[in-house]
């Protein structure tokens, strides 16, 4: 189903259809993440990818034309780049340990300690929250600042443009 969605996404020239299909893709991705037991990420994907970003894209679509412009040149170079990168990534997965292998290096480092001592040290049953907000508090602080910076970046860009267009009138 995801493959089908992506194929239609790539073929479609109507940007409205593209936005709706990318929302569909996000919902499918959220389902996959639920199947992988990553409920927190699935929730984020459904809310951000399928919800808010669809609305923002529709809002942006309202400002421009809904038909994709014709490419100036044939997209062979980008296609070749994408195929090569995808091939390298798939090749890289052969070097990874098997899915849910308990002996994988990532389960041997600090994860075991988080799982063993996390509930006792923080009193928080959801390990994801414990790691995110407590053990990795600095990282989450950085993430919050990234979101903040992105927000004020958008504000700075759009507000200045509006003032300029008002000055032109």
């Amino acid at each position: 189903m995801m493959l089908f969605t992506v194929a239609v996404l790539a073929r479609s020239r109507n940007l409205f259809a593209v936005v709706v299909l990318s929302s569909v893709y996000s919902f499918l991705m959220a389902t996959v993440l639920v199947a992988l037991d990553a409920v927190d990420v699935a929730m984020t994907e459904a809310a951000v990818g399928a919800g808010v970003s669809t609305v923002l894209l529709l809002g942006a679509l309202h400002l421009c034309r809904t038909e994709e412009a014709k490419h100036a040149q044939a997209p062979w170079l980008p296609l070749a780049m994408a195929v090569v990168t995808g091939g390298v990534l798939v090749y890289g997965t052969y070097g990874l340990p098997a899915f849910s292998d308990p002996q994988a290096p990532i389960h041997q480092h600090v994860a075991a300690r988080y799982l063993k001592d996390g509930p006792r040290e923080t009193g928080v049953p959801n390990i994801v929250t414990a790691v995110l907000a407590s053990y990795r508090g600095y990282d989450t602080l950085g993430e919050t600042i990234v979101v903040f910076t992105a927000g004020i970046g958008v504000v700075a860009l759009l507000r200045r443009r509006r003032q300029r267009s008002e000055g032109d009138r």
């Binding site: 609305v55 903040f148 509006r162």
Partner: peptide
């Protein structure tokens, strides 16, 4: 803190886009 910032940023971006339209 995370929740307040995230909802504020999302709303702000939406307001900016919608107001432009």
């Amino acid at each position: 803190g995370v929740g307040i910032t995230v909802s504020g940023v999302m709303l702000k971006i939406f307001y900016m886009f919608a107001a432009r339209a």
